[in-house]
Amino acid sequence: MEEIKSKLEEASGLPNCCGAIDGTHIIMTLPTVQTSDDCCDLEDNYSMLFLQGIVDHEMRFLDIVTGWPGGMTVSRFLMCSGFFKLCEGGQRLNENFRTLSGGVEIREYLVGGLAILCFPGS
């Protein structure tokens, strides 16, 4: 993890960053069986939140989650993931602080899109 954080800071200037996270939908053909609204995404397409991935400085996947209904928001999907539960238990993003010049402390974090706000939360 220290190598990942060092390389990400070298490439982007983001200190103590442990990776990048995002999710994507895959649109499905209208099913032949009765479905619930859980499978409709925000654009009323039948979809499955196909992939949530966390990558390192070399774009290698560190964590992947698939197979949840398209009606879930990306942030809700994250909170239901095993990665989130590991963070809550202190096994990932475990508050390993780094002190910057000026005495400012910054904890480990991931960067992501606007749909993933304040993770892990305060």
Rank of each mutant, 00 (worst) to 15 (best):
C18I: 07
C18F: 12
G19W: 11
G19L: 07
G19E: 08
A20N: 05
A20F: 15
A20Y: 13
A20L: 04
I21R: 10
I21L: 15
D22G: 12
D22V: 00
D22W: 02
D22N: 08
G23R: 04
G23S: 15
T24S: 15
H25E: 09
H25A: 10
H25S: 02
H25R: 04
I26V: 15
I27D: 07
I27K: 03
I27V: 15
I27M: 10
M28L: 15
M28E: 02
T29C: 10
T29N: 05
T29D: 05
T29H: 09
L30I: 12
L30E: 06
P31Q: 13
P31D: 10
P31H: 10
T32A: 08
V33S: 04
V33P: 00
V33I: 12
V33L: 08
Q34T: 14
Q34I: 12
T35R: 03
T35S: 11
S36M: 06
S36H: 06
S36E: 09
D37V: 05
D38S: 12
C39T: 05
C39N: 02
C39V: 13
C39G: 00
C39R: 03
C40Q: 07
C40R: 15
D41R: 02
D41S: 04
L42K: 12
E43G: 00
D44E: 04
D44F: 11
N45I: 02
N45F: 08
S47Y: 04
S47Q: 03
M48D: 00
L49H: 03
L49I: 10
L49G: 05
F50E: 02
L51P: 01
G53S: 15
G53H: 05
G53R: 07
G53V: 11
I54N: 13
I54D: 10
